[in-house]
Every structure is written in C-alpha cells, then in structure tokens.
Write a protein that binds this DNA or RNA. Structure first.
Lengths: 249, 249
DNA sequence: CGGAAGGTTGATTGAAGTCAAAGCCAGTGG
DNA sequence: CCACTGGCTTTGACTTCAATCAACCTTCCG
C-alpha cells in the first residue's frame, strides 16, 4: 500500500458522506500523514487523556470505543472497521470521555490536527463530509441505546451481528457468501450489548442451533438473513448509507 | 421576548462551544427566523420523515428523542432543554432515524436550512460551534449506552437525575436550592433508562426513603449531591462543559 | 508438552418484569 | 361545590430472564 492510496481510502469514505470536487480530493491527497500500527489491546486513546494533536483513520483491523464504570464494568459503545475515523472528536473536544482500543492488529493513518483544521477551513465540503460522518456515528449510538435498553438478549446479539455484517459488506470486507470475521471474544460481545459472556455464549449457540447463523472460530455467516434481521429488529436506516446525494454547500 | 434576544439565546449556546467574533454574532442575529410552539406530545420530527428544510432551537419547555422497536417498546435516547438544537442533524441527514417529541408545551425558533448552510459557509467558526455541539451530543449518547448497558436500576435512575440537574443548572433553570422541574412521567423516565414504570417507581421511592432526593409533584431536589452522584457513578466529564477555550480555527 | 485464554455447560440466585388492583389528584362539567 | 373522569402513582404477588458461581473442555501457541 503506497502513501497515495492510503489517503484514497479516506477519500472513498468521505465521498460516501457527501460529494467532493476534484480540488477537494487533491487537497486531501496533499495532506501530510504518517502510518502507524497498534498491537492487540493497544490503546489509541484513553479516557481522561487530553487531545493529542493527531487523528487516526483505520486502514485495517478492528477497534472499539469503551467506557468503564466505577465498579469496573466495561461498556463497549462502538465498533470501528477499516475506513472509520477513530478520534475525530478530539479535533474539537479537549478531554477524552472514553477510550479507543485496538482489537487485534490495527493499522492507521495519522493526521495532524493542524493540517486537518486547515483542510476543513480551506475545503468546506471536506469539513462537511467529516461532520456528516460524526452525525452518522451519533445515529449509531442512538440505535445502541435502544438495543441495550429495549431488546432482549437474543435480539440484542442478533442486532449487533447484523450491524457488523452490513458495515463489513459496505466496506467490502465480507466474502462472496457474506461470511465475515468478527474477531471479538464473547466477553467483548457481551460488553458491547450489556450482557455477560456466559449469556452471550448460550444465546449464540441458540441462534446457531436454530440454523440462523453459522460460526467457525470467529468467522460468522448468516444462513437466513431475513430471519435474523427480523429477530434483531434490524433496520439499516440508522446507518444512513444513502447519504451521498445530499449536502447543501 | 423580542426577536433579537431569541437569537441571543442561540449565540449564548454556541459561545459555550467555541469563541465567536463580533462578526459571527452579527451574522447570527441577522438570521431570518420564526417562532413556533408545540403542545404536549407534539412531534417535531417523526422517524422516517424526510428532512423538512428547517431546524428548531428550543427556547422553553422540554423535548426528547425516541426510537420504537418493532414490538412497540419505546426507548428515549436523549432529553433536550431550552438552549438545545432539536434537529440539527437534518441539516445533513436525509431521513430521520428517530422521532423528536415535546414533553409539555414547547417553544422553538425555526431556522431555514438554506440560511443556516449559508451561515456555516460564511462564518466557519459558527459552523464549528454547531459541529462541536453535535459532538457533545454524541458523547452524551455514549454515556447513555453505558448507563443502560452496565448500571443497575438505582444507578441508572440516579444518573439520569444527575445529568438532568447539571444541565438544568448550567442553563440557569434550577432555583437557589438546586431544585428543578422534571416534568416527565415515571413511564417516560423508564423509557429513558430501559426500565418499566413500576420499577422506576419503586426505585425512586427507595432513593427518597434513603434521604437522597426529595420529590414534590414532579419537582425534584437533591439532599446529598455527593451521595447521589456517587450512587449514579456520575462524572460530568462527558458533558464537556469546559469547551470554550478550544477550537483551532 | 504445558499453560493460558477463551468457550461451554449446569445449578442456583436475584434483579427487574408482569399483572392486577387500588389510591391519588387535577381538571371538567353538572 | 361536588361528583366524575382519566392519567399517573403506588403497592403486592408472582414470574422470568439474565447474572453468578463453578466446573470442565478446547484451542492455540510458545
């Protein structure tokens, strides 16, 4: 992967959020940047940190956002795939209200806040695309509140799987048969949906026994998308995958 | 309330998010706008709606964001006080992924998307303030995921009360003794924290019996802030009340 | 080959949900 | 002025879903 197509990944992502001009694209490609990688469980951001002056954009691997409660419980509040910004919020928020952690091996491009801020100032449509990206993220948070607050274990887990599968598909990370890797432990899945690992295990096995999903190691496939998305009460509207057309700049 | 100081409320809000220049303020005050009001339970936005071309900024009253699951359960995903934008996201997102509903009587200023977009283009710092506002909202969503996913009934309710009290205080809506009106039914409180109204009732009475809060109708006061915020595991960091200084424009 | 991390299973407990009735209170209309 | 109504709150009895605790099993990797 050359330095150039690294930023191309970012352009592709932003063009999902709103249309960019040739000048916009050129300005992005001109951005100074560095590659970095993190090992499993490495922190990209820690709750309480002061903004560090750089933003990370994921190129490969998986990461999640998490918060801890005082009594030590963890809540995973978001999953991030390649093509996601991991800490855009710190462009503007001074102190980190949550941590961002790599799941397995994670590769990112790092961009300086200063350079990004200049880009946003000079190319307003790029700023708008970034803003829209953060609005979509907020929409996903709302869905997660609903998932954790109002669905039972079966639906919650099914919902997480559906969201993951759709986002992986959109990013071109599923195989022809719709299988994808979900390299999270059952404990982590539990922390993402507000359940214990034991109950996640039983529920996953239940879904598998019913012939709704198949698992092989941590690779997962969906035998009956219709059925599982119904159980999950999954409606992809909240992912706002239809954004491109809009944007009133 | 004259037309001028209506927009002053909006300036005050934005100046909590980042510093504005005299020109920025002037541009905001020049914004064409109309006043509107909604009765109890009126919808400002309905899930599935196409963006309607106007944004509402709350002047008085209370509103919440909610999502419904297929089996009819409701999750309230956010509360909004005077001084909050109610549907800023539709400036950029085409279809509403959730509804916004008035609690009691609600007064708003309405601003045309076109005018707002022009403002954002011409006064980038105002755009930044609005963006930051949506980032802070996203941070609150993350906290809510955690609240609903990892805290027990007592802590969840206490947390909601603490957040509400702090935000009311910041907006100058509490009395000298820190009392404030929380005009929601116990059913609505339950829908905000993922519990049933019956359990909310028992838990509230529990908190009251322990001398942590006092209730009178739907007015609430905190007898021992230290204790209740500890029970709630409440840390106001996620509200990002310290924003003003920052902003790299 | 051994150890650690993660997955699976069973038995038991417990927090919150459900169902149902009764109490309270503000507003309305006779 | 009081009875009536409807919406909310409160309470009790019972149920259920998920948590907890504790093994045991499997897989992977050094």
């Amino acid at each position: 992967m050359t330095a150039t197509n690294v930023l191309t990944a970012m352009i592709e992502k932003l063009e999902m959020r709103c249309a960019l001009s040739e000048d916009d694209r050129r300005a992005i490609l001109a951005l100074p940047h560095t590659l970095a990688s993190y090992g499993p469980k490495a922190y990209i951001v820690r709750e309480g940190d002061l903004a560090g002056g750089i933003c990370a954009f994921a190129l490969s691997g998986l990461a999640f956002r998490q918060k801890l409660t005082t009594d030590g419980a963890r809540q995973i509040v978001a999953l991030h795939l390649p093509g996601d910004f991991l800490d855009l919020q710190h462009l503007f928020l001074r102190v980190a209200d949550h941590s961002v952690q790599a799941v397995g091996h994670l590769e990112v491009v790092q961009l300086e806040h200063g350079a990004l801020q200049r880009l946003i100032r000079e190319r307003p449509m790029v700023g708008q695309a970034l803003w829209i990206d953060s609005l979509v993220e907020a929409s996903i948070f709302r869905e997660w509140v609903t998932n954790v607050g109002r669905r039972n274990a079966r639906a919650r887990i099914a919902h997480l799987l559906c969201e993951f599968a759709v986002r992986m598909r959109v990013s071109g990370l599923t195989d022809e048969a719709g299988r994808c890797d979900l390299p999270m432990t059952q404990e982590e899945l539990g922390d993402a949906v507000g359940l214990t690992s034991v109950h996640v295990n039983r529920t996953l096995r239940g879904l598998e026994a019913e012939g709704l999903i198949q698992r092989d190691k941590r690779r997962i496939s969906f035998d009956d998308w219709q059925a599982i998305s119904q159980i999950a009460d999954f409606n992809p509207r909240y992912l706002h995958l239809d954004q491109v057309s809009r944007g009133g700049g």
